[in-house]
């Protein structure tokens, strides 16, 4: 009886480690594939002028098509930030510092991060679904039969467009967050616009801006690379496309968080 129980526990432990090992191998395989895909996309940057139309189309999807949601997210992020921190600052009579706090947190972290969340959900998932559908309907194979590289034809324009648009979207969100914060600061915390703007200017420093823009650029590479990689490896029909889309969103979020931390650690650690 005892032996049976011990044997059962042992088998479960082996199965557990097997599962961990399998997942780890899958992760490394996917990460390696994504890195190589991005490297090949960089190589095909030499052909970017001939793909200008496709790059501009993708920039339009990433920038203009997400304008409404980016505006709402930007304004409300600023309003929430102002309200939550402003109430605490009010206890110390320091609510006039709210502009400083909002610009600092938005440029350092929140701006690129909110942009990454929005573009992962809207643009990254669409990329994975679109390329995944092309894969399961033989369109990728058809390109290869015509000796057209899918990386040059599909991946490079998407990576270029998202890496270029992500900093722009981040700056847009930061600006709108500052405006949202100003409304709350003035109407609820009774901080005048002049005082708010004065402290906002005080909070603008060169380093957080370039680190924030760098983060946004890297997030653009991550989201487009991960999404295209999952799309290109989609299998098993429509079900596979759904799986690829979901996996690309989860992986993009995780990679944005992890890489975001390391960029912060490198520049501020």
């Amino acid at each position: 009886m005892m032996n049976g129980r011990t044997g059962g526990a042992g088998e479960k432990l082996v199965a557990f480690f097997e599962l961990i090992g399998t997942r780890l191998i899958e992760f490394l395989d996917q990460a390696g594939y994504t890195i190589l895909l991005l490297a090949r996309a960089f190589y095909y940057l030499k052909d970017a002028p001939s793909k200008a139309r496709e790059i501009v189309t993708q920039m339009y999807f990433a920038g203009v098509k997400t304008l409404v949601v980016c505006s709402l997210v930007g304004v409300f992020t600023g309003m929430i930030l102002a309200l939550q921190t402003g109430i605490e600052l009010q206890n110390f009579g320091m609510q006039y510092q709210i502009g400083h706090l909002i610009i600092a947190s938005m440029t350092r972290e929140m701006g690129p991060f909110m942009a990454a969340i929005i573009l992962t959900a809207s643009v990254g998932s669409a990329m994975a679904a679109e390329i995944g559908t092309m894969k399961v309907y033989d369109e990728i194979d058809a390109l290869e039969m015509m000796s057209i590289s899918p990386v040059k034809f599909l991946v490079m324009p998407r990576v270029t467009a998202l890496a270029a648009m992500m900093p722009v979207v981040s700056v847009y969100i930061i600006v709108l967050a500052c405006l949202g914060g100003a409304v709350v600061a003035n109407s609820i915390l009774h901080v005048s616009f002049n005082v708010y703007i004065k402290h906002l200017y005080k909070g603008i420093h060169f380093k957080p801006i370039y680190v924030g823009l760098l983060k946004a650029f890297v997030f653009g590479l991550i989201i487009s690379g991960v999404s295209c990689a999952y799309g290109l490896r989609a299998t098993s029909g429509e079900l596979g496309v759904g799986h690829a889309t979901r996996s690309s969103v989860v992986a993009s979020f995780l990679m944005v968080l992890i890489i975001g931390y390391f960029i912060t650690a490198i520049f501020y650690g």
Partner: peptide, 9 residues
């Protein structure tokens, strides 16, 4: 190759 689905872009 003429693919079953046509594989048009």
């Amino acid at each position: 190759v003429l693919f079953q689905s046509g594989a048009l872009i």
